[in-house]
Computed example of a mutant assay.
Amino acid sequence: MTIKYVDFFVFEEVCRIIQDFIKSDSPVFPISVNFSRFTLVDADFLKTIFSICDQYQVPRSLLEFEITESAENIDETFLDDMIRDIKKAGFSVAIDDFGVKYANLSLVLNSDIDTLKLDKSMIDSIESNEKAMMFIQALAYICKTLNISFIVEGVESQDQFEILKALRCEGIQGYLFGRPMPLSDFCRFLEEKQNKPKNSPAE
């Protein structure tokens, strides 16, 4: 499948960027990389990611592997073993787009994941859907109890943000806070944040 070459190319670019940040004394933080289910089942998957990571001398703690929930097409035992091997190697693992098809709670309960990312579709009607609020609140509580980071994706309005804060969702991302941008713009954004006076109003 062609997609695996795209996945490995993106992973190598991320490693190169982190290496550049480290060499230039820029702020360094973990970066998540998506991998398709077709790439995960590649026989040389682990060997390839280890080789790329070591080539750029990037600490494995700075890399998170995002696996989409559509990976249910992979044998669950194989997926559990893969997640275990990735974690054993020092990387972290996130389940992305959770709820986009169905809530695969067995994946949350039986796999050693670090982060659960709730799909945007689950909050689109949150302002008027009491059941959605209750479900998200319960899921946030379950994740906190299991020591899993819980991130709500696709937050686009202040109303959604306020509701999620009230539901004690600590990880929130979406266009309300920032849109995809070129690397040069992102570096400029980081520099502005770094140089911003500590007593200036929060954005």
Results as ranks from 00 to 15, higher is better:
167 L>M: 04
110 N>D: 11
119 D>L: 06
188 R>M: 07
196 K>N: 08
79 L>Y: 05
194 Q>G: 05
97 D>K: 00
173 Q>P: 09
127 E>V: 14
189 F>R: 09
196 K>D: 07
146 L>A: 03
96 D>R: 00
167 L>K: 04
138 A>T: 01
144 K>Q: 12
98 F>C: 03
84 R>D: 15
108 V>S: 02
155 V>F: 05
87 K>N: 15
103 A>F: 06
186 F>N: 12
164 L>V: 06
121 S>G: 11
113 I>D: 04
156 E>Q: 08
147 N>G: 04
139 L>E: 00
115 T>L: 10
91 F>Y: 14
187 C>N: 14
86 I>V: 15
175 Y>G: 07
121 S>Q: 11
191 E>S: 15
140 A>P: 07
126 I>Q: 08
82 M>K: 12
92 S>M: 08
178 G>V: 10
155 V>W: 07
155 V>P: 09
139 L>W: 00
193 K>H: 11
161 F>E: 03
183 L>Q: 08
132 A>I: 00
85 D>G: 08
122 M>T: 09
77 T>Q: 10
193 K>C: 14
132 A>C: 04
158 Q>S: 06
91 F>R: 03
79 L>D: 01
96 D>G: 01
110 N>H: 11
194 Q>K: 14
92 S>Q: 12
134 M>P: 00
151 I>W: 01
199 N>H: 01
133 M>I: 05
168 R>W: 12
160 Q>R: 01
143 C>Q: 01
186 F>Y: 15
96 D>H: 03
97 D>R: 00
146 L>Q: 11
108 V>A: 01
201 P>K: 14
